[in-house]
Write a protein that binds this DNA or RNA. Sequence first.
DNA 1: CGGTATCCAAAAGGATACTG
DNA 2: CAGTATCCTTTTGGATACCG
Lengths: 122, 122
Amino acid sequence: MGREATSREDMCPHRLVLEHVTSRWGVLVLIQLLERSYRFSELRRAIGRVSEKMLTQTLQTLERDGLVHRDARPVIPPRVDYSLTDLGREAAEQVRSLARWTERRLEDVQEARRAYDEARTP
Amino acid sequence: MGREATSREDMCPHRLVLEHVTSRWGVLVLIQLLERSYRFSELRRAIGRVSEKMLTQTLQTLERDGLVHRDARPVIPPRVDYSLTDLGREAAEQVRSLARWTERRLEDVQEARRAYDEARTP
DNA sequence: CGGTATCCAAAAGGATACTG
DNA sequence: CAGTATCCTTTTGGATACCG
């Protein structure tokens, strides 16, 4: 994520958007914001082990792509709320659906892995 | 992708599957195999700029997860065909649908980016 | 609080050479 | 043809310190 420089710039543009929404932290942010809007630190706690840097980068990328809306209020201490745009909600719903599929099918995958591993460690 | 060691091992297991199917090359492999089965080199050419190493790694991970079936025929020269399992087809269809969404919405995203960039370079 | 800047470690990824 | 093995470069991500 973040500002891709030179090497991945030449990818077909829509693949870049796909990488943003399916990125490690992008997925978690989108799914979380599907529930309601969150403040920065609140979102950080909700997601778990994400560094400030990565959360910032992820939110900036998603905001730039028009998927996340950033509402910064000029108060002290600063208060910034993040929410999904309509576009972001469309993406988030598909991502969540894919994430749920991996949960539902996890057993099948794990069974396949056992078979695979066993077949080549006699 | 590949064999994740120590750092990403502690992720919730289903997120690992999600990362496999949404990984850079995983996406392209799944979508391509949705059309028909492919031989190794044939798949490599169809996808474009992917190194042998990455294609091999990606296919092995997807095979281990039970998403891709590998059919190696004992002939000379070797012939190996890759295809989707039923499980893989389910995943691939969702990934393709998400990929198509990013294509359809690309204009909106690019418009949002222009607005974002213009707003902070006066 | 909500960031930015910098530095460093780890992981992903590519090029090349080699093999059954 | 379909890989493996090795080496090297690029990218990612975390820790830390600082700022409005």
